[in-house]
Each structure stands twice: as structure tokens, then as C-alpha cells.
């Protein structure tokens, strides 16, 4: 067979790569938000709902002793940020289910786009609103006398971002595994996400719980992320919890990307 060069390389072509492809995939997903900003408005209200409705109950039922001497809001709000990230990136795969059925997933796979970029770009889209949400929380907490450290919030978001990419990739792999079976995705996702959430001490402190719950929490990577966020938001950047959280997030990210990329490659044969 004669080897013929069939693509005319255009002068406007830039060198492809993981970063560029990630940006392209991210922008494709984020376009949906930009074109229809209502979804964003509702997602911004979410943290305020928790702030307004959950925090007062927490404050009424727990003494600050149970929270390690902190005010309930200072303890609670970083947890809300983690929770939003958890639900957001955990549903990365759900948005894929539809594309799997229509054929636009296959079309993306048929392009030379970097495979990890498909996962990371989509997970980043779920994380993007988080930046705004965190700012709103920080500002909304001010009237209650709670002050978060801006530098700490930035560090906290970075750790959460790494964790979220990993979780998003896992969710994506789950989406691929439940091709044509939407119930399977939600069944597995909900079954995993709530124990993970409760056993991280995100919403309620685990210190008052039974020993087995505390033991389970020590093997839950989310626990370390939650603790790191609490330390970071108060500006305690030297706290070892930050390092532990960063390690847990990095491990989750690595596992997620390995599992996710394998799933993408397998889905393409």
C-alpha cells in the first residue's frame, strides 16, 4: 500500500496536548452553563440554603465543645463546600449517560483528543461553580461574625479540586459501566456517596459516634479532605491536617484517573 499523506496540515493548527484538550473539553461543557445561566444561579443558592436552614439546627443541638471549641458556622461551612463538590463531581458520569446514548460521546472518542483530558475537563466543569460558591459562603458568613482566611480558602479549594477531579473520573467510569442502564448509575452512586459523606464527619461530628464509625472514618479519604478544609478555611495552613488532606486528595485523583482512563480505553475497545 502506498503511504499517502491525506491530511493537509493547516497553518492554524496548534500542537495538541493534554492541557489544551482539557481546556477544550472544559469549555464545551461550560458552554452549557454560559448559554443557560439559570442552572448556575440555583447552584449558587444551594450553600445559602444550608447556611440558613441547617446551621441554626446544628448550633442549637451541639455545644461548641463537641466541635472542638469552634463556633458551629466555622465548623460547618467548610463541610458544606466539600459536600457541594462531592455532589457536583459525583454526578459527572450522569451527564455522560445521555451523550452515550445519542452518539456525541463516540464522536469525541473518534477525534485525536487526549483521553485523560476528557475526564479532567468534565470534572473541572463540575468544580468551576465551586469557586463562586466558596466566595459567597465566605462573604455570607461575615455578618455572623465568622471570618475565613482568603489565602486559606484558596488552598482549601486547590485540595478540593484535586479530590474532585479524582471523584469525577470515578463517576465517569461508573457512567461508562452503566451504559444504557441509568438506574445502575444512580443506584451505585447514591449507595456509595451517602456513607462516604456521613463517615467523613462532614455534616455532623463523628466524635460522639460509636467506635466503629470513627474507625471507618479513618479509612475514608474524604475525612482527611474535610479536616483539611476546616483547617484551611480558618487559615491554619501549618496544620498537619492540610498535608493529610492533600495526600488523600492526590491519591483519590491518581486512582480515579487510572480507573477512568482504563474505562475510556475499554469503552473504545
Amino acid at each position: 500500500m502506498s503511504v499517502t499523506v491525506v491530511t493537509r496540515v493547516e497553518p492554524d493548527t496548534v500542537r495538541p496536548g493534554f492541557v489544551r484538550d482539557t481546556v477544550t473539553i472544559f469549555l464545551r461543557e461550560f458552554q452549557l452553563v454560559l448559554r443557560d445561566p439559570f442552572s448556575l444561579i440555583f447552584s449558587l443558592l444551594q450553600p445559602l440554603v444550608f447556611l440558613g436552614l441547617f446551621a441554626p439546627l446544628l448550633a442549637g443541638s451541639l455545644s461548641s465543645d463537641a466541635l472542638g471549641g469552634e463556633s458551629p458556622l466555622t465548623w460547618f461551612l467548610p463541610g458544606v463546600v466539600v459536600m457541594i463538590a462531592l455532589f457536583g463531581t459525583g454526578s459527572t458520569g450522569a451527564n455522560l449517560l445521555y451523550e452515550l446514548m445519542t452518539g456525541s460521546y463516540e464522536r469525541v472518542l473518534a477525534t485525536p483528543v487526549s483521553r485523560p483530558a476528557i475526564l479532567v475537563g468534565r470534572a473541572l466543569k463540575e468544580l468551576a461553580p465551586l469557586v463562586v460558591q466558596a466566595v459567597i459562603i465566605t462573604l455570607a458568613a461575615l455578618p455572623f461574625g465568622v471570618r475565613f482566611s482568603p489565602a486559606g480558602v484558596v488552598v482549601g479549594l486547590a485540595i478540593l479540586g484535586v479530590f474532585g477531579v479524582g471523584l469525577g473520573a470515578l463517576s465517569y467510569a461508573l457512567g461508562l459501566a452503566s451504559r444504557n442502564r441509568e438506574w445502575l448509575f444512580w443506584g451505585v452512586q447514591q449507595t456509595l456517596i451517602f456513607p462516604l459523606l456521613i463517615l467523613s464527619g462532614m455534616m455532623l461530628p463523628l466524635e460522639s459516634g460509636p467506635g466503629w464509625m470513627q474507625a471507618a472514618a479513618t479509612v475514608n479519604p474524604l475525612t482527611y479532605v474535610v479536616n483539611a478544609e476546616r483547617a484551611a478555611f480558618t487559615g491554619a495552613l501549618a496544620d498537619p491536617a492540610i498535608l493529610h488532606g492533600a495526600i488523600a486528595a492526590t491519591l483519590t485523583c491518581a486512582v480515579g484517573l487510572v480507573v477512568g482512563v482504563r474505562a475510556v480505553l475499554r469503552s473504545a475497545g
Partner: peptide, 21 residues
């Protein structure tokens, strides 16, 4: 090929970007 909620022009431009344009 197009995502159902995406706009036609957006998808065509994205496709070009996926090929490195």
C-alpha cells in the same frame, strides 16, 4: 454527533479545537 443541549455553531467550533485548530 452534537450534544443535544449544545448549539450548532459551538459544537462545530469545539470539533475544530479537538483537532488542534
Amino acid at each position: 454527533a452534537g450534544g443535544h443541549h449544545h448549539r450548532v455553531l459551538d459544537e462545530l467550533v469545539t470539533q475544530g479545537a479537538l483537532y488542534g485548530r
